[in-house]
Amino acid sequence: MKILKNMAIIIVIIIAVPLIGALFTAKDVSVVREITIDRPHHEVYDYTKYLKNQDSYSKWALMDPDMQKEYRGTDGEVGFVASWKSENPDVGAGEQEILSIQEGERIDYALRFFEPFESNDKAFMEFESINENQTLVRWGYDGHMAYPMNAMLWVMDMEAMVGDDFQTGLENLKNILEKN
């Protein structure tokens, strides 16, 4: 009987510690990466504003060339939606929508993931002219993990996971644009 009581106490502690810890853990995650592209601002922006072009440089789009893709609306305009569905669990299913555009400066996106988990987050791209032939591009993500799922942030380095993928995408974008 004493063994069962001790096991029950241990199980309660194992369950309670992460739940209590999650109360004091951040729920919001922000990640930003940037790169300088040796092309004029208007060329970089004019290419990047089209969401379909992410298929050529985004790490996630390149992970499964056989994923199903659907598009709604007019690309490069507010309200355009690009959706995907992949058998690759690292890609999953979801959609990205252009929420707002500050012409030549910033594009805001809604990211809605359906599989392998559900999530509604935000992303953006910013563009800054450094000089006549160089453009700084920032790609950022703002996510939220509700309690108690935010306890996963103890073991998941979102800054590295998402940031490294953004950096790969930005390097791909740089390679594409600097070839032309």
Rank of each mutant, 00 (worst) to 15 (best):
L51D: 00
E178Q: 13
M158E: 03
A8G: 13
L111P: 02
S83F: 10
N172M: 01
Y57L: 07
F117Y: 14
G104L: 08
A146Y: 05
M145G: 03
D64W: 09
K5G: 02
N175A: 15
T74H: 11
S30V: 06
L153S: 12
W60T: 02
E103R: 07
A61G: 04
E178N: 07
G76P: 02
I98G: 02
Q102G: 01
K5L: 15
I20G: 10
F117C: 04
S100F: 01
R72N: 15
Y57N: 03
L23V: 09
D90S: 11
Q102M: 09
V162H: 01
P89Q: 05
A22N: 08
M125C: 07
F113V: 08
N133Q: 14
D90W: 02
D157H: 08
D121V: 09
D55P: 02
E97Q: 12
E77M: 11
L173F: 05
I3K: 12
Y50M: 10
I3A: 04
L4Y: 12
I15N: 05
I176V: 06
K52C: 05
E159F: 07
S119G: 14
L19P: 04
M7Q: 10
S129C: 05
Q134F: 05
Q68H: 14
G163D: 00
F127S: 00
V32Q: 13
A22H: 12
M158T: 01
S58C: 01
M161N: 10
S83Q: 09
A151Y: 15
R72V: 13
V44S: 08
N180G: 14
M1A: 13
A123Q: 09
T25K: 15
E159Y: 07
K52H: 12
K49L: 05
Y147S: 08
E159Q: 12
A16P: 06
K174A: 00
F127Q: 00
Y45D: 03
P148T: 12
G104M: 06
G94N: 05
Q96R: 11
N180D: 13
H41L: 06
E95R: 13
V29A: 03
R72C: 08
A93F: 05
A8N: 06
I11H: 09
G94K: 07
H41F: 14
E171C: 02
E115F: 04
G94M: 07
R33L: 00
P89R: 05
L23M: 15
W60G: 03
W154A: 09
F80G: 08
A22C: 09
S100G: 13
V162G: 00
N131R: 10
D28R: 12
V29N: 06
S100N: 13
N88A: 11
N6V: 13
D165Q: 08
I98T: 10
L62K: 12
V162K: 01
N150E: 10
I176R: 01
E126S: 13
F117M: 10
L19N: 07
L177I: 04
A110M: 12
K49Y: 08
A93V: 07
E178S: 06
N120Q: 13
V91F: 10
N88P: 06
I11E: 02
I13R: 03
K5T: 11
T48C: 12
G94D: 08
D121W: 13
